[in-house]
Computed example of a mutant assay.
Amino acid sequence: MDEGYSSLPGLRVQRLSYRDISSLCSVADEVGWSFSPERMKTFLQSGCFWGHYANNGAVSSAAVFPLGEELSAIGLVMVKPEYHRQGLGKSLVQLCLENMGAPAALLVATEMGAPLYSKSGFTTINDVQRWIFSDTSSSSVVNTAHLEDTYSDYVFEPLCVHHIPSLEALDYQFTGIRRHRILDAMTYRDDGNSLSGGPNRPNLASGVSGIVGLERGSRMFAGFTLVNQSTQQIQIGPVIASSDDLAIQLLHHTVRLMKDLAGTAHPPFRVDVLAHHRSYTKLLEAEGWKLQKISPLMLYGSWNADLYSNHVYGLIDPAFG
Rank of each mutant, 00 (worst) to 15 (best):
Y117W: 01
Y117V: 01
Y117G: 01
Y117F: 05
S118N: 09
S118Q: 13
S118Y: 09
K119H: 07
S120Q: 13
S120M: 10
S120W: 04
G121H: 03
F122R: 01
T123N: 10
T123F: 09
T123C: 10
I125Y: 05
N126W: 09
N126D: 14
D127I: 07
D127E: 13
D127P: 04
V128K: 00
V128R: 01
V128H: 00
V128W: 00
V128L: 03
R130F: 05
R130W: 04
W131D: 03
W131R: 01
W131K: 01
I132R: 09
I132A: 00
F133I: 05
F133Y: 15
F133W: 03
S134K: 09
D135V: 02
T136M: 13
T136F: 14
S137M: 09
S137E: 13
S138R: 08
S139G: 11
S139Y: 09
S139P: 07
V141Y: 11
V141K: 10
V141I: 11
V142L: 10
V142C: 15
V142E: 07
V142D: 04
V142W: 03
N143F: 09
N143R: 12
T144L: 10
T144F: 07
A145Y: 06
A145W: 05
H146S: 12
H146T: 06
L147P: 04
E148S: 14
E148T: 14
E148D: 14
E148I: 15
E148C: 13
D149R: 14
D149W: 08
D149F: 07
T150E: 11
T150I: 09
T150G: 11
Y151V: 07
Y151E: 05
S152H: 09
S152I: 07
D153Q: 08
D153C: 09
D153I: 06
Y154W: 08
Y154P: 05
Y154A: 11
Y154T: 11
V155S: 12
V155F: 05
V155Y: 06
F156N: 02
E157C: 08
P158W: 04
P158H: 12
P158A: 07
C160Q: 15
C160R: 12
V161H: 11
V161D: 10
H162P: 04
H162K: 11
H163F: 05
H163I: 00
I164L: 15
I164A: 05
I164R: 05
I164C: 13
I164V: 12
P165A: 02
S166C: 07
S166M: 10
L167G: 03
L167F: 04
